[in-house]
Simulated scan of single mutants.
Amino acid sequence: MTNTATLEKPLSPLAIQLNEALKAQDPASPLNRQTICDRCPGAAQAIFTYERGDIYLCGHHMRANLATVLDGPVTSYWIEPSELGHIRGVGVPEQDFTRAGDGLTDA
Rank of each mutant, 00 (worst) to 15 (best):
R39N: 11
N65E: 14
S76K: 13
D106K: 01
V90Q: 02
G89N: 05
V90Y: 05
L14K: 07
H61I: 05
T75V: 15
E51A: 15
V90I: 12
I79E: 03
N19F: 04
V90R: 03
N3P: 10
P81C: 08
P27R: 06
P93D: 08
M62I: 02
P41L: 10
L84T: 03
Q17A: 13
G53C: 11
T6K: 14
L66P: 10
I47C: 09
W78M: 06
G103Y: 03
G103N: 03
N32G: 14
R33Y: 12
S12H: 07
T35P: 00
Y56T: 12
R39D: 06
S82L: 13
K9G: 03
P27E: 07
E51N: 10
L14E: 06
N19L: 07
I47G: 00
T68Q: 13
Y50P: 13
N32H: 14
L66A: 07
H86P: 00
I47M: 07
C40K: 11
G101K: 00
T2L: 12
D106V: 04
V74E: 04
V74W: 04
G42R: 12
A44W: 00
T75Y: 01
A5W: 08
D71P: 03
T105N: 05
T2P: 15
L104W: 01
P93F: 09
A24Y: 04
R99H: 11
K9F: 11
I47H: 00
H86M: 11
H86R: 08
P81F: 04
L70Y: 09
M62G: 02
D54K: 13
D54C: 09
N32T: 15
I16A: 11
G85T: 09
M1I: 02
G42L: 12
E80Q: 15
Q45N: 12
Y77A: 05
L70C: 09
G42K: 11
E83A: 13
G103K: 00
P93C: 12
E94Y: 07
L11Q: 13
H86W: 15
R63Y: 04
N3G: 09
T6A: 14
G85Q: 07
A24G: 06
E83Y: 01
S76H: 10
C40P: 02
I87T: 08
V69F: 10
S76P: 11
I87K: 05
A44N: 03
T49C: 10
L70K: 07
Q95G: 09
G91C: 10
V90L: 09
A64V: 01
H86N: 11
A28V: 15
A21V: 06
F48E: 06
L84R: 02
S12K: 09
G85R: 12
D54V: 08
G42D: 15
V92N: 01
D54F: 03
M62K: 14
L14P: 04
E80C: 12
H86K: 08
T75W: 01
G101P: 02
R39L: 06
D106R: 01
Y77G: 07
P10V: 09
G72L: 13
V69M: 15
I87C: 08
A100M: 01
P27C: 10
A15F: 11
P10F: 06
W78A: 04
T75I: 15
